[in-house]
Nucleic acid binder design. Structure first.
Lengths: 217, 217
DNA sequence: TAGATTGTTAATCGATTAACAATC
DNA sequence: TAGATTGTTAATCGATTAACAATC
């Protein structure tokens, strides 16, 4: 068994845990600003309204050890979370579909805190091509292929209309993209090894509306 | 026990199920377009890559009965899903924070398919006040209070900077908002009965980056 | 009729929560 | 020392998956 195989067997972190980690990170950064040097799981749990045991378990994925009666070192924990999540690295991404949502993501400065950096955007609309949003140039979609040969971009952000999503996703994969952040409603049919992370606004709307209607009756 | 109490005990639908329902709805609408009159759970499951048994169970929440060997009536199922999700009603919403993400949501026509209609947006930035995005007027934040008295809006969309999110959320609640769709990273501390649905971009980025890094090794 | 699919009930799986010993 | 908190192991809870009878 070679080195690369060994790493593959490292502890898999569950998706619910993974989704909670950025919340901890944000809160810890606030606390650091306020000069808090040590912080306990119960304190975090109270603020983010989740179980202290769960906080302990979640934070254990970083490998940071806390001290009983004291808690965790704030700075150490922040650093370890950023490292674990990859937020301190710069992960370059292409964006295709510079419409409303696409432009918002481009302008959304917070993305740089995520270690996710959109280095180029593509569109087929001639009105948009040549313009810039949030400092990112919008290029002719045809240039995706020539550009991806030179750059080694692994992440694609898909904010096109639904009806072209499948085709664009396939193009992305052919250009070397290994993970797609999908904001469309399309059900992408791609090779097994391509990572697809779908963020469906309608799923959230569904949960919100249903809860609201439930509480009415 | 009065009528309103009785309804509260109706079958609670789990959040994972709820989140899958809009995906079924989108696929079914595509199928209807193509003239498909009946559709089976295995067919749906294959396309959306999930277990047929799960599809059956999920769809059962609508109350629609399928026929063995035939499947479900496409039209009936679409109608029942829309009804169940509340997507065929118009649920009015306020939006506060007409920045990048806020503007994207305003322009995002798809929202009308969600039965979620933004009827007014608010901001404190004088440059934005008076302008329109996606046909929605951006009003002075101070007008939130006077306007909410006349309108009976239950849903608030929160797309402000993190540092004012708590204050704005409290204002929304004081204006009669019962459910908040929170796009900020802030940990909102609100009365128990207020429904908060947080959509955290960083949670998705975390899952995406982690999966990508896992697959590298 | 034969066989695919529904719909329900049971088994499995995984995440959350509880319990508790270790320790600072 | 006393007691709060960590960190681990066990119990619970809920969702997914499997099994299977009913049925069109």
């Amino acid at each position: 068994m070679n080195e690369s195989r060994k790493y593959k067997t490292k502890k898999q972190v569950s998706e619910p845990t993974l989704k909670r980690l950025p919340g901890y990170l944000y809160f810890l950064e606030q606390q650091k600003e306020e000069g808090v040097l040590n912080i306990s799981a119960p304190t975090i749990g109270k603020k983010l309204s989740c179980d202290p045991t769960q906080v302990v378990k979640d934070l254990s994925v970083t490998g940071i050890k806390g001290k009983p009666r004291v808690g965790y070192n704030t700075y150490e924990l922040i650093h370890a979370l950023e490292e674990f999540l990859g937020f301190n690295r710069i992960n370059e991404a292409f964006l295709v579909g510079a419409g409303n949502l696409g432009s918002a993501l481009m302008a959304y400065q917070e993305h740089q805190e995520l270690g996710l950096k959109i280095i180029a955007a593509f569109d087929t609309d001639e009105v948009k091509i040549g313009k810039s949003v949030g400092g990112i140039h919008i290029l002719d979609y045809n240039k995706l292929f020539t550009l991806s040969g030179r750059l080694n971009v692994k992440i694609g952000i898909l904010t096109t209309p639904n009806n072209v999503a499948q085709d664009v996703a396939e193009d992305m994969v052919n250009c070397g993209v290994r993970a797609i952040w999908n904001f469309t409603s399309a059900n992408l049919d791609l090779p097994e090894d391509v990572i697809v992370q779908t963020t469906s606004m309608s799923s959230y709307a569904a949960v919100l509306l249903r809860r609201l209607n439930d509480s009415d009756k």
